[in-house]
Design a protein around this nucleic acid. Structure first.
Length: 952
RNA sequence: GCGCCAGUAGCUCAGCUGGCUAGAGCACACCCCUGAUAAGGGUGAGGUCGAUGGUUCGAGUCCAUUCUGGCGCACCA
C-alpha cells in the first residue's frame, strides 16, 4: 500500500486542497451598485433609519448643520451631486463620532425663475391674456397657484434624486420657503429688523414697463433694435471764471460741457455730468463756440458733429474739473461736474449726462454725491408737474422729439442724428421699457441698529474677522471684500410669486408698516400662508394687531381705510432667514456649527444669512463656513447645457452607481475648480473595486472565526506580539483611524480617501494579506496563530467599515452585515473604535528590507527563479535590526526561506528548485519530507492535516 | 475693468515656514501567480513644476509681470 502511494505521489502530487482553509464569503466581488443601491435605499426607508439614528443619538451633543436651500426648479445636476454628497459626508462622519445631527433638507421656492417659466407657459397656452382681465388679487393668486404647483413638483422630483445619492436627511420633514410656518418665521425676522431700524424705503431706478405699469427683472427683458435720437448737447458753464482758472485761460465767451445721450427724454432729470477723474479734457474752440470734451474723444466728436474749425486751447485733468457747475439747458437749476470710474472713451464725449432717477450708475453716483433721486416720469410714462410746462403730461417717447426741438431752438443742440441700438423691451407687451426710479424697500448696511448701536456692516466685519472659521482659508478674504463693498440691500421686488412685504398704503398716500403690524400679519400667515395677503382684507390680515399697544402706530390710523401694497421680498431674504425659520423654530440649535455651499454663495446665502441674523440676534448664524469650488469639464471649462459638456446625474448613477460617485467626491480637492468627466468615474470605480476586494479578502477569511464580540476580537488583536505581522498591522490600523478621524473633523475628506485607499492597497493588499495568506489557508483552522490573524482581520474590518461609512454608506453596510450577520446593529449607531495601538518604528527597517527583496527577486528571474517560493533569501543584518522579526520575514517577502547574516552586505537569492516542495503549502521549507500518507509535507502542514511525520 | 482662486508626469493630486538626483495613485510597458481569479503580486519607463523677469549661495516653493481657466461683482450713458 505504502509503496503504491509513494509511487503515485512521485508522479502526481497529492491534492491537499480540500484540507486547506480557503476563503469563503457571501460578500460578492461585483458590487452591482445600480441595482443594489435602490434596494438599500428602500430598506433604509422601510426601517426608518433616520429615526433610528436620531434615537440612537438622542442624548448626544448635537452638531448643528444647516442645509442651504437649492432652487426648486429643474432636475438636479452634477453640482447638486457634489454639494449634497459633501454635505452627507459631513452628516455621516459627525454621526460616526457619536454626535447627533438632525439634518433638514430645504428648498427655495419663490422667485422670478419659476414665475418666469410659469408665465411663459401661460403666454404660450394663451391663458395670460385672460389673467389681465382679473383683479389684482385674483390675477396674482392665479399665478401663485401655478407657481406653487410647479415648485412642489420639482421639490418632489429633486428629493427623490437626492435620496438616490444615498444621502441621510430628514426627507419626511423638509423645509420649503413657501411653507406657512417658514414664511411666518421670515416675517418675524423682518419685523425685528424693522424694529432695530435697519429697514427703510427709498427711490431706486428699475426697468419699468409702461404698458404693464410694472417693474421688470433682467430675465423679463428682450433686447431688440430700436431707433432713437442720438444727440450732442452743450451744457453752459455756470461760472466762466472758474473754468478759466482750471484751464488757465481767458475765455472770450462762456464755454460749455458737451454731453452725448440716446435718451433725450431723460434730460429733464439731469442733475450732474460725470467725467473720468484721470482722463484729459480739452477746452476747444469749435466753429466759434467754446466746448469742453475729453481730449481723447475730440477728433471723433468733431467728425460726427461736422465741425469745420477745431482748435484746442488748453487741457486739464478730469479731477480738476470736478466741482464746476453748469446751467441746465432748459430747467431752472444748475448741475455739478462729478467723477465716476465707469466713464469710458468708447462712445460719446467723455462727459456723461447723469440722471440719478433714470440709470443705475447715475443712481449710485447720485447717492455718493448726495443728489436727489429725481424722476419726473410717472408710472404711465408721462411727465409730472415738476417737469417744464411744455413736457407735462407728455409720454416720454413723444418727449424725445420735443426735447430735441427745444434744444435746437435754444441753441444747445450741437448735433442730432438717428441712432440704431439694442434696447430692452418688455417680453410680454414687446414695448420698450424705461429706467425709472421707484420706491423700494432696503435694509441699510450702514445704519446703526437700536439694540447694538452698530451697523450690519460693522457687525458682519467683526464676525468675519473674529468669529467665523473659513474652510478653505481664502473664503475669509472673499467674504471680507464683499462685506466691505456691498451696497444697501434692496429687498423688494414687484412680482406675484413670493412672500409679500406686509406694508399698507394709507389714504393720504403714506405707508403703514410697523414691527407690531408685521408680527400681526406673520401670525395670520403662520395660520393661512402668504396667500392670505391676496385673499384677505387689511382688517383681516391685521386681526391680531392692537394699535393701542404699538408705540410705532401712527396717530390717525384707520385700518379700514388701508389698502395692501404688493411688493414681495427678494428670495434671498427668505433663504437668508432660514436660521430662524428652520434652526430656531424647529429647535435644532442656533447658531449652526456649519454652513456648506459653493463659492458663489459668498455673495448669496452666506452673506444674506449673516445680515439678518446679525441684525436680529447679534450672533452670526454659522461658526464655520465650508465652501467648495465649481465643477468644470476636463479641459477646465465651465459646464453648460449649451456647450454640450454637461454630465447627466442619471447617467452617472446608472453607469457607475451612487457609491462610485460618492467615492469620487470624497477624493476630490474641493477648494477651487473641480474637473469632472465620465473617465474620472471610471478611475474612481477602479479604486472603489480595489477597496471592495480588499474588504472581501478580509471577510472571506473570517467565515470560521469564533463568534467574538468586537471587544474580544480587539483584545486578541492587541495581544499580538509587536514583532508579528498582526502587531504591525494593528499599529498601522491605529494610525489610519487616528488620521482619518482628524481629517474628517477638518473636512479634509480627500486625506481620508487617500489614507483609506493607500491602507487597503498597500498595507493590506500588497503586504498584510499576501503575508498572512499562508497561515490563514494552511495552519490548522484553530491554531493560535491563525486565530490571532483572524482577530486582527476582524478588527481591521470593524475599523474600515466605520471609516468608510461616511463615503460609502451602502458598501460599508453591506460589508458590516457580512461581518456581523443580518441582525447586526445599525452601522450608524456605532462609533469609532479608538484602538490606540502604538506603531512600532522598528518595522521601518523590515519594510525597507522587504522592498530590497522584491528588487532582488526581480533580478533573480533572469536566473530562472520566477516563483518567489522557489527562492531562499539571505538578508544582511549588520546591527540585528531584523533579528526580532526573523519568524515573519519569509511570509512577509513571500519566499520559502529567509536567513539573516550580520556579515553580508547585499541581498542574495538562492535557488531552491532542487529542494522538495510541500504539496500543500507549495513552500520549499527545510522541513518538507515525505509523510505517512505518502505526501510531501512540511512539519506545519503535516500537523495541520494530522499526519504524523513519517519515521525515517 | 475689479475681487478671490487654480495651473506640478497621459490623468487625479502631494510637495509644511525656500535646501540632497521633484513624490504618490491610476493609466501604460514587461514579468510572476492561478488556493482573493472578470482577482492578487513585482519591476520599470514617464515631468525644462503655465510663461517671463527678479530676490537668494540655492526657488515648484518668495516677489513682479504675463498667459490660460473658474467663481463673484461691475459696465455698455
Amino acid at each position: 500500500m505504502g509503496v503504491v502511494r509513494l509511487s503515485s505521489s512521485m508522479t502526481e502530487p497529492r491534492d491537499y486542497k480540500p484540507t486547506l482553509n480557503l476563503p469563503k464569503t457571501s460578500f460578492p466581488m461585483k458590487a452591482n451598485l445600480a441595482q443594489a443601491e435602490p434596494a438599500t435605499l428602500a430598506r433604509w426607508q422601510a426601517n426608518d433609519v433616520v429615526g433610528a439614528v436620531t434615537q440612537a443619538r438622542a442624548a448626544s451633543e448635537p452638531f448643528v448643520f444647516h442645509d442651504g436651500p437649492p432652487y426648486a426648479n429643474g432636475s438636479i445636476h452634477v453640482g447638486h451631486l457634489l454639494n449634497k454628497v459633501l454635505k452627507d459626508i459631513v452628516v455621516r462622519s459627525v454621526l460616526m463620532e457619536g454626535r447627533a445631527c438632525h439634518y433638514v433638507p430645504g428648498w427655495d421656492c419663490h422667485g422670478l425663475p419659476i414665475e418666469h417659466r410659469v408665465m411663459t407657459g401661460l403666454v404660450e397656452s394663451g391663458k395670460a391674456a385672460k389673467l389681465d382681465t382679473l383683479s389684482d388679487d385674483h390675477r396674482r393668486m392665479a399665478i401663485r397657484r401655478e407657481c406653487a404647483a410647479y415648485a412642489t413638483k420639482f421639490i418632489k422630483s429633486q428629493a427623490i434624486q437626492m435620496q438616490r445619492l444615498l444621502t441621510l436627511a430628514d426627507y419626511a420633514n423638509p423645509y420649503f420657503t413657501m411653507q406657512p410656518q417658514y414664511e411666518a418665521g421670515t416675517l418675524e425676522v423682518f419685523a425685528d429688523l424693522l424694529e432695530q431700524g435697519f429697514v427703510f424705503r427709498q427711490l431706486k431706478p428699475v426697468h419699468w414697463s409702461i404698458a404693464n405699469q410694472t417693474a421688470l427683472a433682467e430675465a423679463e427683458l428682450e433686447y431688440e433694435d430700436r431707433v432713437d435720437p442720438s444727440i450732442y448737447v452743450d451744457f453752459e458753464a455756470a461760472d466762466r471764471a472758474k473754468v478759466d482758472a482750471v484751464f488757465k485761460t481767458e475765455c472770450a465767451c462762456n464755454p460749455s460741457f458737451m454731453i452725448w445721450t440716446t435718451t433725450p427724454w431723460t434730460l429733464p432729470a439731469n442733475l450732474a455730468i460725470a467725467l473720468h477723474p484721470t482722463a484729459q479734457y480739452a477746452l476747444v474752440e469749435m466753429d466759434g463756440s467754446l466746448t469742453i470734451v475729453a481730449a481723447e474723444m475730440l477728433e471723433r466728436v468733431a467728425a460726427i458733429v461736422g465741425a469745420t474749425t477745431v482748435t484746442t486751447l488748453a487741457t486739464a485733468r478730469g479731477s480738476d474739473l470736478v466741482g464746476l457747475e453748469y446751467r441746465h439747458p432748459f430747467c431752472d437749476r444748475t448741475g455739478r461736474i462729478v467723477a465716476a470710474d465707469y466713464v469710458t472713451m468708447d462712445d460719446g464725449t467723455g462727459l456723461v449726462h447723469t440722471a440719478p432717477g433714470h440709470g443705475d450708475d447715475d443712481y449710485r453716483t447720485g447717492l455718493r454725491e448726495g443728489l436727489d433721486v429725481y424722476c419726473p416720469v410717472q408710472g404711465d410714462g408721462t411727465f409730472d408737474a415738476t417737469a417744464p410746462a411744455w413736457l407735462r403730461g407728455k409720454v416720454v417717447w413723444d418727449a424725445n422729439t420735443l426735447v430735441v426741438e427745444h434744444l435746437r431752438a435754444s441753441g444747445h443742440l450741437v448735433h442730432a442724428l438717428q441712432f440704431t441700438h439694442s434696447y430692452p423691451h418688455d417680453w410680454r407687451s414687446r414695448t420698450p421699457v424705461i429706467f425709472r426710479a421707484t420706491e423700494q424697500w432696503f435694509i441699510g448696511v450702514d445704519r446703526r441698529g437700536v439694540r447694538a448701536g452698530q451697523s450690519l456692516r460693522t457687525m458682519a466685519m467683526d464676525a468675519v474677522n473674529n468669529s467665523i472659521k473659513f474652510v478653505p482659508q481664502w473664503g475669509y478674504s472673499r467674504m471680507k471684500g464683499m462685506i466691505e463693498n456691498r451696497p444697501d440691500w434692496c429687498i423688494s421686488r414687484q412680482r406675484a410669486w413670493g412672500l409679500p412685504i406686509p406694508a399698507f398704503r394709507t389714504p393720504n398716500d403714506g405707508v403703514f408698516m410697523t414691527a407690531a403690524s408685521v408680527r400681526a400679519v406673520a401670525a395670520c400667515v403662520r395660520d393661512k400662508g402668504s396667500d392670505a395677503w391676496f385673499t384677505l382684507s387689511p382688517a383681516e390680515l391685521l386681526g391680531s394687531y392692537d394699535a393701542g399697544s404699538d408705540p410705532d402706530a401712527p396717530q390717525d390710523l384707520d385700518i379700514s381705510a388701508l389698502s395692501k401694497m404688493y411688493d414681495i421680498f427678494d428670495v434671498w431674504f427668505e433663504a437668508g432667514s432660514s436660521w430662524n425659520s428652520v434652526l430656531r423654530q424647529r429647535g435644532i440649535g442656533f447658531p449652526a456649527d456649519l454652513y456648506l455651499e459653493g463659492s458663489d454663495q459668498h455673495r448669496g446665502w452666506f452673506q444674506l444669512s449673516m445680515l439678518p441674523a446679525l441684525g436680529v440676534t447679534g450672533v452670526n448664524p454659522f461658526r464655520t463656513l465650508l465652501t467648495h469650488g465649481f465643477l468644470v469639464d476636463k479641459d477646465g471649462r465651465k459646464m453648460s447645457k449649451s456647450a454640450g459638456n454637461a454630465l447627466d446625474v442619471d447617467v452617472i448613477l446608472k453607469d457607475f452607481g451612487a457609491e462610485v460617485a460618492r467615492w469620487w467626491v470624497s477624493g476630490v480637492a474641493y477648494d477651487g475648480d473641480i474637473r469632472i468627466d465620465l473617465d474620472y468615474f471610471k478611475v474612481a470605480g477602479e479604486s472603489y473595486r480595489k477597496v471592495r476586494n480588499t474588504l472581501r479578502f478580509l471577510l472571506s477569511n473570517l467565515y470560521d472565526a469564533p463568534p467574538w464580540t468586537q471587544e474580544e476580537a480587539l483584545a486578541i488583536a492587541r495581544a499580538a506580539k509587536p514583532e508579528s505581522i498582526d502587531g504591525w498591522l494593528l499599529g498601522e490600523l491605529s494610525l489610519l483611524e487616528l488620521e482619518c478621524r482628524a481629517a474628517y473633523k477638518a473636512y479634509d475628506f480627500r486625506r481620508v480617501h487617500l489614507g483609506i485607499f493607500n491602507f487597503c492597497n498597500e498595507s493590506l493588499s500588497s503586504i498584510y494579506c499576501a503575508a498572512v495568506k499562508d497561515r490563514l489557508y494552511c495552519d490548522a483552522a484553530d491554531s493560535p496563530r491563525r486565530r490571532q490573524t483572524q482577530a486582527t482581520a476582524r478588527t481591521a474590518m470593524e475599523v474600515l467599515c466605520r471609516l468608510l461609512a461616511p463615503f460609502l454608506p451602502h458598501t460599508a453596510e453591506e460589508a458590516w452585515t457580512a461581518l456581523r450577520g443580518s441582525d447586526a446593529p445599525l452601522l450608524f449607531s456605532q462609533v469609532h473604535l479608538g484602538i490606540a495601538a502604538t506603531r512600532d518604528a522598528r518595522w521601518d527597517e523590515v519594510m525597507i528590507a522587504r522592498s530590497a527583496v522584491s528588487k532582488a527577486l526581480e533580478g533573480a528571474k533572469s536566473l530562472g527563479i520566477e516563483n518567489p517560493l522557489d527562492a531562499a533569501i539571505t538578508l544582511p543584518d549588520p546591527i540585528g535590526a531584523l533579528a526580532p522579526f526573523a519568524a515573519e520575514l519569509a511570509d512577509l517577502c513571500g519566499v520559502s526561506r529567509v536567513a539573516l547574516d550580520a556579515e553580508a552586505s547585499t541581498v542574495t537569492v538562492a535557488d531552491l528548485r532542487s529542494q522538495p516542495r510541500c504539496d500543500r503549502s507549495w513552500r520549499r521549507d527545510s522541513t518538507v519530507r515525505q509523510r505517512s500518507d505518502g505526501g510531501m509535507l512540511s512539519d506545519r502542514d503535516a500537523l495541520s492535516v494530522g499526519v504524523l511525520p513519517k519515521l525515517s
